[in-house]
Write a protein that binds this DNA or RNA. Structure first.
Lengths: 104, 104
DNA sequence: TGTACATATAAGCAACTACTTATATAATAG
DNA sequence: CTATTATATAAGTAGTTGCTTATATGTACA
């Protein structure tokens, strides 16, 4: 593997928000509105994080009607490494912000 | 493992220069002057990188006379993960800058 | 002791990052 | 169609990063 590629991969995973998003997706696909409730950041911030993960091939997105479901890409070359990393993390401690409700 | 701790760890490894430094140390301990020849950056830059890796517990330093030898810390909790990562990288392609010679 | 060499520290800076708010696009329900 | 909901994009910004040059500290040897 190219050193620049590994650098980009590590940088992509070297962010608290993205790690939490991936930890949440470990259990199965979720849409942006679900993920926004989990993190204490705005919807655009979550969207931007997911697109960065997608660009790196770490996650996949699939539209189902009004929602777009995001999931971990099991065919990424470093998929098993990612699972090992996520296993290091504790089960999500949800810090929702009060004003955010579930998507309807 | 704490999410902030993993974030810091990934950020520390998410840098091309530090990855190259660690790849070089895979073969055994080296001093700053050796490492400076390997990278195309200044001696202070290498020193700063090594101290960041040390702060994270990834490397160890040991003075031997005038030189300080740096090595990968085999007792770091994520040591085997680090080895897996370094195995992904090709053998160092040395891009010395001409004006830099070996330390005497 | 003084000079040379190895390394560390300090200060400054351009580029990048992760957020924000505002707005645009896309899909469905009525 | 229009309104609502889900998501994306744009633009701006404070904080961080990785380098630089200049200088200080540490060690050894003549």
């Amino acid at each position: 593997m190219d050193i620049e590629t590994l650098e980009r991969y590590m940088k992509t995973l070297g962010d608290k928000s993205r790690l939490r998003l991936l930890k949440a997706l470990e259990e199965g696909p979720l849409c942006i509105c679900d993920l926004t409730v989990l993190l204490d950041v705005s919807q655009p911030a979550v969207s931007q994080h997911m697109h960065r993960l997608k660009k790196e091939g770490i996650v996949l997105d699939e539209r189902r009607g009004r929602w777009i479901y995001w999931s971990i890409n099991a065919h990424h070359p470093q998929y098993s490494l990612l699972l090992d990393l996520l296993k290091l993390l504790p089960r999500q401690t949800t810090t929702c912000r009060e004003e955010n409700n579930r998507c309807k």
